[in-house]
Amino acid sequence: MYPRPHLRGIPRELRDEILKAYVKVEGGYTYIFRSGKLTAKGQPVDLALTFTYRLISEEMRGLALGLNSIIFSTV
């Protein structure tokens, strides 16, 4: 039986590419003033992966906002 793979067990360079692909959204994020929410393609931004491991959380800090543009919507 093989050990279960986990994200912490792969090399940092590959993990960085996986995290970038996880947070990158075509068209970026939209901030809607009326609701006070940040959305991606009309859906809430999902960064649940940041709650899995402390190491992953630290590596993802600022990544989503650094890779995606933010559009501010007043309507």
Rank of each mutant, 00 (worst) to 15 (best):
A48I: 05
T30L: 08
L65V: 13
R8G: 03
E17A: 04
L47C: 06
S73G: 05
I10R: 05
S69Y: 08
E59G: 06
G9E: 13
M60T: 15
G66F: 07
P11G: 02
T74I: 04
E58Y: 02
G27T: 14
I71N: 11
T30G: 10
R61P: 01
T30I: 09
R12M: 04
S35R: 12
F33C: 06
D16R: 15
P44R: 01
E59L: 09
Y29C: 09
H6R: 14
P44G: 02
G27R: 15
F33V: 15
R34T: 01
I32Y: 11
G9D: 15
L38F: 09
G42Y: 05
Y53F: 01
G28P: 15
T39W: 02
E58Q: 13
V25D: 01
P5N: 06
N68F: 02
L38T: 02
Y31A: 14
I18F: 08
V45I: 14
Q43Y: 08
Y53V: 04
L63A: 08
L7W: 12
L63R: 14
R15E: 08
G9C: 11
N68W: 01
G28Q: 06
G9A: 14
K24V: 11
T50Q: 10
P5I: 03
I56Q: 02
F72L: 10
A48S: 15
V23G: 09
G27S: 08
E13H: 11
V23C: 11
G36N: 01
E58M: 01
A48L: 03
F72R: 07
L19S: 05
V75Y: 01
R12D: 09
E17D: 13
R8I: 13
G36Q: 05
H6D: 07
T30F: 05
K41A: 13
V25P: 11
